[in-house]
Design a protein around this nucleic acid. Structure first.
Lengths: 216, 216
DNA sequence: CCATTCTCCTTAACGCTGTTAAATTCCGCT
DNA sequence: AGCGGAATTTAACAGCGTTAAGGAGAATGG
């Protein structure tokens, strides 16, 4: 008889499993009972490791951030523009890696202070490039907030890359908007080719920082 | 005996009541039973008017948009910069008018096509100013997505203007981040003075559009 | 070596949620 | 008077996050 004792849970294993499940069931379907079942445990066991479900979501967001950092080698010799592009592309990619990734991420707060290292390094790079601290914060956080907003909307239409939520037929939309020709035509621009559009918006923000803070 | 018959519900009255309640109980506390009670009705009655809760949330978002438009007189003679500033300030103000306003708004889709009028007018203004349609869409939606991202984060810290969520003491945060001096100091910049920071980010985006699309 | 303590988990239950099915009430129409 | 549809209620269901109480097993210590 298998007297194998399952290794005890820990926060990381729970968060990892929850993130894996997230892609299959989405945020609405991600219940404590589902997560527990996958871990071969009953739901209340999770309360030993997390004070409530939000704390678990926070850990999931933190883990997403960790993975993003781990998967994004940053060159300390980057120009600030390169840094801004690289880190925001990485953020988008990471968020797109999970169904409802942006919602989970932006609805949570990091556990611990692990993110501070990365943040410090970025602020150092920006101030070294001639930004005041206030400008550095404005530059990075404006870009960050754009990315978050972008991916949130993007995932509202495409929950996972290539997978389309119903009711977003571009042609159908254009037909309905026959009386608004510009808006109708804009549909293609709005609901397709997210990658390209993200880049374009990102470039707009970067250009704004260049010109307004005079640090080309 | 009061044989007064309550006027039958309609989508607008339900959405209005739900929006009023939203400020008192927040998105998590906004249940169909609460809304129904306020309308002097039982919860299943709402299903006569909405196919499910999301449809009600969609109507709420649409109503928010209607109110924003109604409360924001737009001058057809605006420069595109003025239009961008005015409409995004209006959006932020409207979203801040409701607890979890940004979450409700960005998690929903408009019912109907009422928003198309406003959109058409904006696109007309931008193309008349020399933008291509693609540029006009990129300019307006990048700004829009920034605003959405901004207010979402803002309301994560200040659910309603002047009302602070716990665990966001700037001084406490600075103490914890003693090893990361720039990040610590950035706290003040990040979690205070949202109005000013919003304006600054908005200005960055507008500048970027100016320089990159060469339409000053 | 036994007793105690601590860690981690289970069983059982609670109140609440969104939602459905069926019955009911009320109004306008013929 | 009676029918039909609109609008609502009553009753119920499965599932949710969460809590309380208890139990098994390892670790500790006298």
């Amino acid at each position: 008889m298998s007297t194998e004792r399952r290794a005890p849970l820990d926060r990381k294993r729970v968060a990892d499993t929850a993130l894996k499940l997230l892609n299959e069931v989405g945020l609405d379907g991600l219940t404590l009972r589902t997560i527990a079942r996958e871990l071969d445990v009953k739901a209340p066991a999770l309360y030993w490791h997390f004070k409530d479900k939000q704390a678990l979501l926070d850990e999931m967001a933190t883990e997403m951030y960790r993975r993003m950092v781990a998967g994004t080698p940053l060159d300390a010799g980057d120009t600030w523009q390169e840094r801004l592009l690289t880190s925001n592309r990485a953020l988008r990619t990471e968020l797109l890696g999970y169904r409802d990734g942006a919602k989970v991420f932006s609805g949570s707060r990091f556990t611990g202070l692990e993110h501070a290292g990365q943040m410090e390094e970025s602020l150092r790079l920006f101030t070294a490039a001639g930004f005041t601290l206030a400008q550095a914060v404005r530059a990075t956080s404006t870009t960050y907030l754009y990315t978050l907003g972008f991916v949130t909307e993007e995932q509202g239409v495409e929950p996972l890359p290539g997978e389309r939520r119903e009711g977003f037929d571009v042609a159908e939309r254009a037909r309905l908007m026959a009386d608004f020709p510009l808006s109708a035509e804009a549909g293609a621009e709005l609901f397709r080719d997210y990658g390209r559009h993200f880049e374009e918006g990102l470039a707009l923000v970067v250009s704004g920082i260049e010109v307004r803070y005079g640090v080309a």
